[in-house]
């Protein structure tokens, strides 16, 4: 019934760009879809772009933290990019620190972060 957020694949990375005010069910669907796509594609990284999000409440925050934890279990690293200052300030006030979620200022920097990780991991014996 509800819309689903599209998941794009660029090489080894899955890219999700959240463009609309999300309904709770859509948030849960996204979490499920991502887990499935990670396994199906063998992706090594996930980038969630929240530049367009005007708020992140505890529900969305929890989805971000869960997705990061789930993807790590499936051997993929998650980076959340583009969080607005007002959103970050609000999350801190709300008491949500998104422990375990890696973040980057922009999509570019997020992708670079995953790339650095990958080379570091492959360099290791």
């Amino acid at each position: 019934m509800s819309d689903r957020v599209p998941i794009l694949r660029i090489g080894q990375v899955l890219l999700v760009s959240i463009q609309i005010d999300l309904e709770d069910q859509t948030v849960l669907d996204l979490q499920d879809d991502l887990a499935e796509r990670i396994v199906a594609t063998g992706a090594g990284g996930v980038v969630i772009d929240i530049t367009a999000l005007e708020i992140v409440d505890s529900f969305v925050g929890r989805m971000l933290a869960n997705t990061a934890a789930i993807s790590r279990m499936l051997d993929a690293e998650t980076v959340v990019v583009g969080m607005r200052p007002a959103v970050a300030i609000t999350l801190v006030e709300l008491g949500l620190s998104l422990g375990g979620v890696r973040t980057a200022l922009t999509l570019d920097k997020g992708l670079a972060l995953l790339e650095r990780d990958r080379t570091a991991r492959t360099a290791r014996p």
Binding site: V80, A88, S97, T103
Partner: peptide, 12 residues
Amino acid sequence: LKTVVAARLMGA
């Protein structure tokens, strides 16, 4: 302190 945490959330 909150600013530092907020900056981290943004990736800085």
